[in-house]
């Protein structure tokens, strides 16, 4: 039986919060089958100190100049090489841009089962049963797969591992494929934080796909103004060009924790929930009672969002 391997993403010398959760999930896996947790760390140059990777028994470090920046092809070459050498029972990724490329690429190239969007699992005698989110969070799919298996985990579904003693550090040779890559990192752009910053807003009114047209957006803007809230949008609204990117909430937008989050016509896809489920008071309005947003909202209304925006605006002003 091999160990469980976790692909760890490092940003600015810290491991990503989702990687901490993956290490926590890996500890659960390791406890279930009686194995160790190994973390793969990619480096451009030997680091002055090992990164903090709570939950890892072993840090597998691969060092090569091409690993200085994000390059899915390079990371996949390293992961494949490590998997060949270590023969793990499971390889764990998180659901993000890098994880999507690596998990599916590895599963297809190494002909291993892949369970995506995992929110829970149980392990037993050489196999895993996992629960995955599907259909935008509206259904749960339970599946069984034999080891060795590849997993991608949903952010927020697993607890971070508690701190452990210093892990063993193992330096692995970089694969030769890194010297003949067909892709090349050009530049990275961080979100511009010099202008508008949604993360500091205490109240946010977020409009979603349920808004039929821009007149509904205007109603939401009016309500936000009355409430003293900032207007925000889910991904489809920003993709349509109705709101600028800095007002997008979710995985690839802003992650916010306002005191009030009023979601109007937002279905609550997992990628959206990742950006707002930490808000103190969440109120959702959606005509679909099965919308996943009601799973995280404290209060909900299954009424027309335009009519509700008008009614709430009037109710607030009437009592002012």
């Amino acid at each position: 039986m091999g160990n469980v391997l976790v692909f760890v993403e490092e940003r600015d010398g810290e491991i990503a919060p989702t990687s901490r959760e993956a290490l926590g999930a890996a500890r659960t896996f390791a406890a279930g089958v009686g194995c160790q947790v190994e973390a793969i760390v990619l480096r451009a140059e030997a680091a002055p100190r090992p990164i903090e990777a709570p939950g890892a028994d072993v840090l597998l470090c691969v060092t090569h100049p091409t690993l200085a920046n994000i390059c899915p092809e390079a990371a996949l070459a390293v992961v494949e090489s490590v998997v060949r050498q270590r023969e793990p029972a499971a390889i764990v990724f998180t659901y993000d841009a890098v994880g999507l490329d690596l998990a599916s690429g590895l599963a297809m190239r190494a002909d291993r089962p892949l369970l995506s969007h995992v929110i829970g699992f149980a392990v037993q005698a050489g196999q895993i049963e996992a629960r995955s989110q599907a259909y935008g969070g509206k259904a749960i799919v339970e599946s069984r797969a034999a080891f060795p298996v590849v997993l991608t985990l949903m952010p927020g579904a697993f607890k971070e591992a508690a701190g452990r003693a210093a892990p063993e550090i193992v330096e692995l040779e970089p694969p030769e494929r890194l010297d003949r890559l067909r892709t090349e990192f050009v530049a990275e752009t961080r979100q511009d934080t010099s202008g508008f910053d949604l993360t500091v807003a205490e109240k946010v009114v977020c409009i979603g796909r349920g808004a039929a047209d821009e007149s509904t957006l205007a109603l939401a803007r009016g309500l936000a103004a009355t409430l003293g809230a900032e207007i925000a949008g889910s991904r489809p609204i920003v993709d349509k060009g109705w709101l600028p990117k800095e007002r997008q909430v979710g995985k690839s937008g802003r992650k916010i924790k306002p005191k009030l989050y009023l979601a109007l016509g937002v279905s609550g896809a997992p990628e959206h929930l990742e950006g707002m489920s930490g808000a103190e008071l969440i109120v959702a309005v959606n005509t679909d009672p099965s919308a996943p947003i009601f799973g995280v909202a404290h209060y909900g209304a299954t009424v027309d969002l335009g009519a509700f925006a008008i009614a709430l605006g009037a109710a607030l002003k009437a009592g002012a």
Binding site: L115, E129, I140, E142, Y299
Partner: peptide
């Protein structure tokens, strides 16, 4: 390479407290 065992709807026990169905 994996067997689908079951499909279900998410747990509805932790759903939002619903406000009245009349919009006002």
């Amino acid at each position: 390479r994996a067997e689908r065992l079951r499909v279900s709807l998410p747990d509805s026990s932790q759903r939002a407290n619903l406000l009245p169905s009349d919009v006002n």
